[in-house]
Nucleic acid binder design. Structure first.
Lengths: 216, 216
DNA sequence: TTGCATCAATCAATCGATTGATTAATTTTG
DNA sequence: CAAAATTAATCAATCGATTGATTGATGCAA
């Protein structure tokens, strides 16, 4: 049946996502992945063409599912721009908790810039996410809700960057914060509400207070 | 002469640093490194014991030079806390321009956590920088110059994270900003002053404006 | 039977590492 | 000092292991 095939592919993708996240692209061999997935090695190439094809398939499935969630926020015309930003922050910090292993992998890959074709595709997909939040910010400026002097692109860099710094260097961050970021319970209960409140306060004060960007 | 040997080892380290930065630990083969350095493959093992030994040597050399750069901005008691933050931002954004290749490698390694001993050393070094800026922020709060509700640790994450996001994913950032971040001239002339002004405005509005961290 | 799914076996390529031989430099010895 | 002995530096060649990929045989459902 066709359903079985899809389920099997999905199972392989689940395992591959985990193993890639744990060991990186190079560290994860096709033998390890197929072994842990309980399928024959040749099936990976049969289904996905190549190791890189499998890697790309993992990313496609993941990022597109995130993108669908985003579209709903931007298209809601009834709420204010700031409300959308708050929703975005909540959605984003939730991803940190549930998906931080894969998030690490994603930005590792983007940082490497090996496999140029793959980097291009990841960049393209992420750009759609960026465009979503950029539009929210632009609308907020246009409506007068946000300060007109804000640097929209760097605001995006701050949201992504603050989260990435914490997720991608958990050892350092744990030392800075004083508790273990890699502990799922602490991450969910202590860290998540903290960064959520912080990002809201930080962005609110920057986006909505008066400040002059032109000095120096 | 002894000088020649040191120069040669240093030259190998120069090349290794570049190649590792470009391709990562796994992506950089010993053949590539020795080839680009113009030495025989066996020399890498002869001098550094193993590939990992070479990798560690690259970091050791760099970390030593890092410690020299640690400046005591915080020790200047004559200026305000905000003035110190501004100085810190300027110093930090300068490093983006001059060292961004190795910075990438450093945070990749910190992210991977594959060579635990090395991760520990990197973390220790970075913690010294963190302690510097944390003290400045604490002093600012104590003197009433900064809002007492600020989240000091996450402010640090924002400064580091915003910069790292841009440096470590130049392809994405270039697309977001609309110009090539990997072009040294544009990086220096267009991007550096921009992120400098942005970080100052962002932090000023958060640190010095009134806001309530307790809501929600 | 026909076509897709699955498998063990095997492929060529590349990896890091090591070998033994050779040369260059240094030290010891007479 | 100079010849001999020793050590350090360098090289081409090759090692075994592992990699991603492919093959041809086999099973199986339609």
């Amino acid at each position: 049946m066709d359903k079985d095939k899809i389920d099997k592919k999905d199972h392989i993708l689940d395992v591959a996502e985990r193993v890639f996240s744990e060991l990186g692209f190079d560290g994860a061999s096709t033998r390890t992945i197929s072994g842990e997935a309980g399928v024959n090695m040749a099936m990976l190439n049969y289904y996905f063409g190549s190791k890189e094809g499998l890697f790309l398939a993992v990313f496609k499935r993941k990022i597109i599912s995130f993108q669908d969630l985003l579209k709903n926020i931007g298209s809601d015309g009834s709420t204010s721009a700031w409300n959308k930003i708050e929703k975005y922050i909540e959605l984003y910090t939730q991803r940190v908790v549930t998906n931080n292993c894969f998030q690490k992998l994603l930005y590792q890959e983007l940082s490497m810039q090996r496999r140029g074709e793959l980097s291009d595709q990841i960049t393209d997909i992420l750009m759609k996410n960026v465009s979503e939040i950029r539009k929210i910010l632009q609308d907020g400026v246009k409506s007068g809700e946000f300060n007109k002097n804000i640097d929209i692109e760097l605001v995006i860099a701050t949201i992504y960057g603050t989260k990435n710094f914490i997720v991608n260097s958990p050892q350092l961050t744990s030392k800075v914060l004083g508790y273990d970021i890699q502990n799922d319970k602490l991450l969910e209960e202590k860290f998540k509400p903290r960064i959520e409140a912080y990002l809201k306060t930080l962005l609110k004060s920057y986006l909505m207070n008066e400040h002059d960007n032109t000095t120096k």
